[in-house]
Amino acid sequence: MPTFSLSRRQAVAAGALTAAGITPLISRAQAWPSKPIRLVVPFAPGGSSEIIARATAVELGKNLGGSVFVDNKPGGGGNIAMAEVANADDQHTLILGHIGTLAVNPYIFDKLPYDVSRDFRPISLLAKVPSLYVVKPDLPVKNLKEFLALAKQKPGQLNYSSAGNGSAGHLAFEYLKSASNTFIVHVPYRGTGPQLTDLLAGRVDAAAIGAPAILQFIKTGKVRCIATGTAQRIPQLPDVPTVAEQGLSGFEMTQWYGLMAPAKLNPAHDAKLMAATMKSLKDPGLLEKFAADAALSVGGTAAEFEKFIAVEQQRWKAVITRAKIKPD
Rank of each mutant, 00 (worst) to 15 (best):
E245A: 07
A86C: 04
T321I: 03
P238F: 08
P137M: 00
D71Q: 03
P284R: 08
L126T: 07
I214Y: 14
P42T: 00
N159G: 04
A151D: 09
G164W: 02
I123L: 08
R203H: 02
H92F: 09
V68G: 15
Q10R: 15
D90E: 07
V104K: 01
W32D: 01
R233I: 02
K272Q: 14
V311T: 09
E288A: 13
G76S: 00
K62R: 11
K154H: 01
K317N: 03
A208S: 14
Q30A: 14
D90N: 13
A168D: 14
A20K: 00
R38N: 15
G229C: 07
Q216L: 08
Q255P: 01
S297E: 15
H170W: 02
S27W: 13
Q313G: 02
K128W: 03
A88D: 02
A172N: 07
V85Q: 05
P241H: 04
A57M: 08
H170K: 05
G156S: 04
L102G: 06
A295G: 14
V185R: 14
D110I: 05
L96S: 11
L126Q: 12
K154A: 03
A53H: 15
L158N: 10
P140G: 01
L281F: 06
T18S: 08
A11Q: 07
C225K: 13
A275P: 05
A29Y: 11
T192I: 13
T23I: 10
E59M: 12
Q255H: 10
V135W: 03
V134R: 00
P140E: 04
A310N: 01
D293K: 12
K264W: 09
